[in-house]
Design a protein around this nucleic acid. Structure first.
Length: 110
DNA sequence: CTCTTGACTGAGG
DNA sequence: GCCTCAGCCAAGA
């Protein structure tokens, strides 16, 4: 389909779907890959409509590896459990060894 | 059209 | 390293 028909949200969803199992990325990294580095907030905003879709939103965290969007998931620690289920160690909403599980679309996806 | 609201980020103290 | 502030920009009222 034509890229012109893809909204910013759709592009975000497309990238998030490509995040490998057991990997995570940041809102800024996605925004940067989409050519809108300044729109990191929009990436997170887009995640609001990710429910009901096949979007692994739990693999998207802020640049610190902090689960800032966990409150948008069911329960209080669903997001953390989803990540731990993929082998990602999370303590107090903070991803441990963040650098080793970080997946940058602008590099990995090229 | 204007104003508010963020699942963000980088810079400055 | 932590806290605060300001810039960012799309969507909804």
């Amino acid at each position: 389909m034509k890229p012109e028909t893809l909204n910013f949200f759709d592009k975000v969803y497309d990238v998030v779907r490509q995040i490998p199992f057991g990997k995570v990325t940041s809102y800024g990294a996605i925004a940067n890959y989409l050519g809108a580095k300044r729109s990191a907030r929009m990436v997170g905003y887009a995640m609001n409509g990710s429910h009901g879709k096949d979007i692994p939103a739990h693999r998207v965290v802020n640049r610190k590896g902090l689960l800032t969007g966990k409150h948008h998931f069911e329960g209080t620690n669903l997001m953390q459990q989803l990540l731990e289920n993929e082998g990602v160690v999370v303590i107090e909403n903070q991803i441990q060894d963040f650098a080793s599980v970080f997946w940058d679309p602008s590099i990995e996806l090229q």
